[in-house]
Design a protein around this nucleic acid. Structure first.
Length: 296
DNA sequence: GCCCTACCTCTAAC
DNA sequence: AGTTAGAGGTAGG
């Protein structure tokens, strides 16, 4: 057990709990009054008040720049939400979820997580990603009152795992997708560090060369790992939100919806998407009597 | 282009 | 308590 290094970042409106639990990252756990998880090879403990984000880590020489980047500590969230279009839905979402932010995740872990996310609910995605780390990652030092955790294994490691061993972790038909993606990246056939430099549309096309990666998963990686602000992942919840909130009672094609989203929510479509996503999910879950209003 | 279906497994809802 | 439908997509027809 190592002593913890710690650092406090000055932030404004940092809603840590919402940020870590809103479906963009899958390996954060609430523990007493804080959260713990992993950023690359750092075990991390995080807690926030309205003006401070305090990070502790067991890492022997913490990479604070990496950590600052992951948590986007220098981002002024108000500057982004202030530029959302002025409509009642977004206004309500911003008011309800004040301080919800986007992280800047490790590209491979983010990609792998979202390959595993298709037709899965969040608790199961959490279970599988944790299980992958436990089985194939490297154990990290943790404080003695905390459970063991491991790093998320590299593409090189996962490309060597057999499909049947991956299936044992419960990922079903996604196993070959994960393995093939790991192989393509490990072999250098596809380079995530090159894709990050490409403009949004080109980067999206590049990512979709991977089997199991379509427009939605590509957009998740572009937004949550590469910080491409134009990415607008449209999943079932966001589709419902767009249809019901902006085109009630009308038939509208997928491509029309995409065009609308790309233009209407500028200059921060990605952030707007996350607020709409959360807005729709919580409204849907908490008001069962109004479910019919949200049917596709 | 647009629509349909199979794909694994878990979970929540009958 | 067993059983079944549906789940934060994608590929292939």
């Amino acid at each position: 057990v190592r002593p913890l290094h710690s650092k406090t970042f000055s932030v404004s409106d940092y809603n840590l709990s919402l940020t870590l639990s809103c479906g963009q990252a899958f390996r954060w756990h609430p523990f007493e009054q804080h959260w713990f998880g992993v950023v690359e090879d750092h075990w991390i403990r995080a807690e926030a008040s309205t003006s401070k984000l305090t990070i502790r880590t067991t890492h022997s020489s913490p990479d604070w720049d990496l950590i600052s980047d992951y948590f986007q500590t220098t981002q002024e969230i108000a500057e982004i939400t202030d530029r959302f279009p002025n409509d009642p839905h977004l206004n309500q979402a911003v008011k309800s979820f004040k301080g919800m932010r986007l992280l800047r995740q490790h590209p491979w872990e983010c990609l792998a997580s979202f390959i595993l996310s298709s037709t899965k609910q969040i608790p199961h995605i959490q279970k599988i990603t944790e299980s992958i780390a436990t089985h194939y990652g490297k154990p990290l030092a943790v404080p003695k009152d905390h459970p063991p955790v491991s790093t998320f294994p590299s593409p090189e490691v996962l490309s060597q795992v057999s499909e049947s061993d991956l299936r044992k972790l419960g990922m079903g038909y996604r196993a070959p997708y994960l393995k093939m993606s790991a192989q393509m990246i490990a072999s250098g056939d596809l380079s995530l560090s090159e894709i990050v430099k490409q403009p949004y549309e080109e980067a999206k096309t590049s990512l979709q060369r991977l089997h199991g990666v379509g427009p939605k998963i590509a957009d998740c990686v572009l937004l949550f790992a590469f910080g491409k602000q134009d990415a607008f992942p449209i999943d079932v919840w966001v589709r419902r939100a767009l249809k019901e909130l902006y085109f009630p009672g009308k038939k509208i094609s997928q491509s029309k919806l995409e065009t609308f989203a790309k233009t209407y929510f500028q200059p921060y479509p990605g952030y707007a998407q996350q607020y709409l996503f959360h807005y729709m999910r919580t409204a849907y879950n908490s008001q069962s009597s109004t479910q019919d209003n949200f049917k596709t």
